[in-house]
Each structure stands twice: as structure tokens, then as C-alpha cells.
Amino acid sequence: MTDPNEFLQFEGTDGYIASSSLIDAVNAAIALQRPLLIKGEPGTGKTLLAEHVAESLGHPLEKWHIKSTSKAQEGLYVYDTVQRLNDARFGDGNVSEIRSYIKLGAMGRAFNADKPHVLLIDEIDKADLEFPNDLLRELDEMRFTVMETGDEVVAKIRPLVIITSNNERELPDAFLRRCVFHFIDFPDRDLMQQIVAVHHPHLETKLLDQVLVKFFWLREQNQLRKKPSTSELIDWISVLLRSGMTADDIEQHIPFLGALLKNEQDTEALDEYSERGGQYPSEWADLGPRYNN
């Protein structure tokens, strides 16, 4: 590379429709070598983004799925003491070589790799309150020391770090300051049509319209506890197609409601609505001005 400002660019892939601001945010994270923090409603494709960025850049992807019990240390490395004790007992393996019992975690592997990686830290808000702070130095300097051996793992090539959060809890300021941030908006009508077309390319327009009108109408119902999201819409369309439903079948009904609403109270609320004689919209015009300009 002659131009120091030159860097690999992400431009979306065939399987992933990204808005221009998302593309700019991803490219900013690549160029500035900062972690990219992605927030958004569940089901808007946060995790999927990492896969497609990796695919588009041609880099392997390391995934680190965070649980409530996850510790920062686990992403770096784990020292398998029990295995070593066992080997000592039965004379297997090279017990005196402590390094063979150090297993690198996702972050450790991404640092240690010879070619650039994409590192996904998925749902960081699930972990303990201090978790993001425990990773500050590792994310800044891209290096850490294996305490047991004194070895230092240094990233030869800085991986692109993508972090997702569902907003279950607030992240510490010091952590946020280091990230490039993007919030995935819920897709609007046009973008949603493109997204559906990626997953169901042969859907007829009339059916698609009916499906989307119902879907966006459902999302407008504020009494729902859990609004359906993109991934539920895609599943719902699959079910409709497989059962051979046509646009007419869903003009006045919402069949297979279970694919869209995952909460029992929500399903009941909707049943009640139709028992009371409530009507479902069948035209874009029945929805608000947000969908009709």
C-alpha cells in the first residue's frame, strides 16, 4: 500500500442490505482502527452484520458470545488446570510445558493470528457491569500477558472489533469514548422491501404488500409487549409461503400469528381485538403518513 490512508472498504453484501450511515460507520471503524459498537432493537441484524463484514472483507471471523457469567479473562485465554493435573497423574502429555495447557479465547486467537480477523463480541451488555472496563486496555493496545507463562500476546495485525449491545444496561463512558457507534434504525418501508427481497426473491408484489402492511401495523400497536422484528417477519413469510397462502388469504386475517408474536399476552390481545370486530388494514393508505410519502 502506497497511500497510508488506503484501507479495505466495506460496501454491503448481496445477503445484507446496509444503510449508507451503517456503511460509513463500518468504514470509519476500519480506518480509525476503533471498535465498532452496534446497538439496535433485537432482530435488526446486529450479529449478522459482523458475519457479512467479515465475508465482504475476506477476513475470518472470531465470535465471542457473552453470557451473564462471562469474564473478560475468558476471551483472552483459559488455563486448563484440571487437564494438567490429570495428565500429571496418568503421565500423559508434556506436563512440564505449561504452554500446552493455555488455551486462547476468541480475542486471544484474533490477536495471535497471522492475517487480519474480524472479532465479534456479541451482546456485551449481558455480562457483568465491569466487563467492558476490564477489556479497555486489551482493546486499546491489542495486547495482553499470559500470567502463568509471562508470554505476551500482541496483535500483529489489529483485528476489526465489532461489539453488539441490546441496551440491557448502560455501558461505561470510558468504554464508549473509544468506540465508533452506530444505531441500527428499524428499517423503513423501502429498506424492508429490499431486505425481504434478499431472503425471498420470488415473492409476488401483492403478497409482499399485504405482508408488510400487516407487519408495520402490528408494530404500531403500542400495547404489544414485544413488537415483531425483521427476523420474525422473514420467518413469517417462510411459513406463509410453505403453507401456500395467497394475498387474499391474509387480506383480512393474520394467520400463523405465533411466528410474529412470541408473547402469550400479545397473542391474546390480538385475538381479543379481532373478536371485538377490529379490522386489519389491507392497504398502505390505512397506515399513517409515515408509510405513505
Partner: peptide, 27 residues
Amino acid sequence: EGLGKGLHGSSLQRFYNLARATLVKSE
């Protein structure tokens, strides 16, 4: 630094995207 690397391209929209992604950390 992002501006220095030319990430804003030449459009106001991309300039806006870059500014928001780097300066604002919460929706």
C-alpha cells in the same frame, strides 16, 4: 483523524455519518 483520512468523501451526508458515528455514543 477520520476527516484526515478522508472518510467524509465529498458529501455532506457522509460527513454527517462520520461525525455522528465518532462523536455520539448513544441513540
